[in-house]
């Protein structure tokens, strides 16, 4: 099929950037979206034009590196699917497709479709872990975990840190990402000792990184390729409320 691509080109952080139109012919429906961009880039290079920079790595929907706004939707039109797993059979001959980077204050553009998501790492560094230095662990079966809690923890842990939630949110909020990790760890017995310091540390880091606040719009969960549920944010808010009440409290409160 033949398509018209309109792609955001931006030389670097200081450049203003613009949409550039590229017609592309003979696209196979079995190609992935990124393979279609590969084909475009091969042609650009041979014609002496710099290829479009975009982030990608595993191309099997798990590393979270790919990050394309396709026709205004994070990762494109197919639900529960990252851009690398989106296939061209989802489009039709003659379509015009807009391709842009994630747009959010906390994710500045590096070049073309590539953004800097270092802010996510900062949120994790501020408490998104269980402190368990190597070698200190007790025998794995010493603490059973109810299956429904383990399964629910897994659902939240499936987050790939791609940032689609932020890109989809009108406020540029990173709450779904933050809440997914909070939920995973607070559902596990191992996560209890740091439960309340964790939520305060992570939420503070989230706000400092320039993410917007959550106003319960729900675009994040709709865009999430891994189906992280919106109710994780409710869980985060409950923990945050309890944590602020405890902040001045005494041990055991």
């Amino acid at each position: 099929m033949n398509l018209t691509l309109r792609i955001w080109r931006q030389r670097g952080p200081q450049d203003k950037g613009r949409m550039v139109t590229y017609p592309i012919q003979d696209v196979s429906p079995d190609m992935s979206f990124l393979e279609m961009l590969d084909v475009l880039n091969e042609r650009l290079i041979l014609s002496g034009e710099e290829p479009v920079a975009f982030d990608h790595d595993c191309r099997e929907g798990i590393c979270g590196m790919c990050s394309l706004m396709i026709n205004g939707e994070a990762h494109g039109p197919q639900r529960g699917t990252t851009a690398c797993q989106l296939h061209m059979r989802q489009f039709s001959d003659g379509d015009t497709i807009d391709i842009e980077p994630w747009r959010a204050r906390a994710f500045p553009v590096v070049k073309d479709l590539v953004v800097n998501r270092n802010a996510f790492d900062k949120i994790i560094a501020a408490g998104g872990y269980i402190t368990a230095p190597t070698g200190s662990a007790p025998e794995a079966h010493s603490v059973p975990v109810a299956k429904n809690n383990a399964d629910a923890a897994f659902e939240s842990a499936a987050c790939i840190g791609c940032g689609a939630c932020v890109a989809a949110c009108p406020n540029g909020s990173g709450m779904l990402f933050t809440a997914a990790k909070i939920t995973q760890l607070s559902l596990l017995p191992q996560g209890q000792p740091e439960r309340y310091t964790r939520v305060i540390g992570m939420v503070d880091a989230h706000d400092e990184a320039g993410f917007g606040g959550c106003t319960n719009i729900g675009e994040c969960a709709a865009a999430c390729p891994k189906g992280i549920p919106l109710n994780t944010i409710g869980r985060l808010n409950r923990d945050y409320l309890k944590a602020t009440a405890k902040r001045a409290g005494t041990p055991g409160s």
Binding site: A132, A137, A140, A150
Partner: peptide
């Protein structure tokens, strides 16, 4: 396995 469980890795459970 002990180490990963302590870190909160959500392994499949019975």
């Amino acid at each position: 396995i002990d180490q990963c469980v302590a870190q909160g890795v959500p392994f499949a459970r019975e």
